[in-house]
């Protein structure tokens, strides 16, 4: 199973998000949060994770829109199953 460039970027973003949301990186962020509990009036710890995972959600939406391979998979499946059901 070969991955398209878009898929590779998307999966790298997910892996990066998981790395950024877990120790040891999270421990470093957590130390910062202890001295700076708030950033822009929001809890720093919460804001950090919210931003990381919002990037993942937005990337997922972009991937769903843009990845040509996923669209082709949909078309392939439609040809095999859904048209057959119409007949």
């Amino acid at each position: 199973m070969s991955l398209s460039l878009g898929e590779k970027i998307f999966y790298v973003i997910i892996i990066l998000a998981i790395i950024l949301s877990n120790p040891p990186i999270l421990n470093i962020v957590n130390e910062y949060c202890k001295t700076h509990p708030l950033t822009l009036s929001f809890p720093t710890f919460w804001l950090y994770l919210e931003i990381v995972w919002t990037i993942v959600i937005v990337s997922f939406a972009i991937a769903a829109l843009k990845i040509e391979k996923w669209r082709k998979i949909e078309e392939r499946v439609e040809k095999i199953f859904l048209k057959k059901e119409v007949k």
């Binding site: 877990n22 120790p23 040891p24 999270l26 421990n27 957590n30 949060c33 202890k34 509990p37 708030l38 009036s41 929001f42 809890p43 720093t44 710890f45 919460w46």
Partner: peptide
């Protein structure tokens, strides 16, 4: 958030109030 940062700052980072959230 601002009152929590002053009165209960330990709740705004790990390991939390009870120290349960170890890595």
């Amino acid at each position: 958030f601002s009152e929590a940062a002053q009165r209960i700052p330990e709740g705004l980072s790990l390991p939390g109030f009870k120290g349960a959230f170890t890595p």
